[in-house]
Design a binder for these strands. Structure first.
Lengths: 191, 191
DNA sequence: TAAGATTGAATCCTCAATCTTT
DNA sequence: AAAGATTGAGGATTCAATCTTA
């Protein structure tokens, strides 16, 4: 599940050493890259272990969050000026950034556990509508306050200003990440 | 594969709005938390798509990196003063932070693809020794320069100073992450 | 044809046995 | 016993079909 299969990051001196053999290796870039991935893994790990006690996974929890407080009518489905909350498996997959097949699987286990319910769309019989059950509403009401407290605790080592700086720096990276699969090839795939 | 099942992060105003309903939600903490996870997902996604063109996964690549340039004799296995490179499945699992069962699976597919070779330990017949094959050495020599270039490009939007700041801020978070599973429970698991 | 949802085969990962050797 | 490695069952994920409806 972690992005990085390394528990202990290499020391900066090791990166400098490795750069002698690989001129393309930029130590400060590599260090920053490894730290972002590692921090993400660690934070996700904490959240994951917290969720695991309720037999909940990050993926299934994410679907619950997407469905949470979405309202029923289209007018209710817009939260504070944002896009309407997703309802169908296709919308959920799009919003979550996973394939429809993955969403089918997630909704399967959520439905099996009584947390969501599939209902056929009355207008278009190809579509399904996914809704939270009262059991899921109750779970979210009980779980979320502690979840937010956990996040606050994780970020407590940073001051408000440092958090803003962190978000700004990460934003600069994300704004320049090539979308989709068009990342430059390390070497020709036909080699 | 992503840690976060949300493609578009909520806007800050939405977090402030949500905080009215959940007093435990601290907007700046939540924003920073979501950004770290999201940035990690995006960066890992780029690396993953780059590796995928060679039928390589982050997990298997991580094993290759762990094994890379480890040398044969114990004296060679220490790289620039760091811990000796792992050799057995148990050591690899420990260094990678995954279970031994996971490492067995990764080594299985790497061996099937001719990238590593298992050899029984002559001293202790319970143990195996895992080594890179010449095919894997060649792959790494061809792949790594482009890999490091890719990372440099991803971090290019940041100045050297900004990278140091980013690493410092992430380090402050990581230093205070509770180890293992002892994260505070959001609410009693027995509820 | 095309779109929504699902299924089947495959990889990656975990936990809880199991098997072998110490 | 205890340690190293593996196996088996199951969840999460993807891709490439497949099925139904528009």
């Amino acid at each position: 599940m972690p992005h990085l299969l390394i528990k202990d990051l290499p020391r900066y001196e090791c990166l400098i050493e490795a750069a002698k053999e690989f001129p393309d290796l930029d130590p400060s870039s590599t260090e920053a890259y490894l730290h972002v991935l590692h921090a993400g893994d660690e934070l996700a790990g904490v959240a994951e272990r917290s969720l695991a006690r309720f037999s909940m996974s990050q993926g299934r929890f994410g679907v619950l969050m997407l469905l949470w407080k979405g309202g029923d009518s289209p007018s209710e489905r817009t939260q504070c000026g944002c896009a309407p909350a997703p309802r169908t498996p296709a919308e959920l997959a799009e919003a979550a950034g996973v394939t429809r097949a993955t969403m089918t699987g997630l909704v399967d286990t959520l439905e099996r556990d009584g947390l969501v319910k599939r209902e056929p769309d009355p207008d278009d019989r190809r579509m399904m509508s996914v809704r939270l059950t009262p059991k899921a509403e109750k779970f979210m009401e009980q779980y979320l306050p502690g979840h937010f407290k956990l996040i606050s605790g994780l970020m407590a080592p940073l001051t408000e200003t440092e958090r803003r700086t962190l978000v700004r720096l990460l934003g600069k990276i994300q704004d320049h990440i090539p979308a989709g699969t068009d990342a430059a090839a390390p070497f020709p795939a036909t080699a």
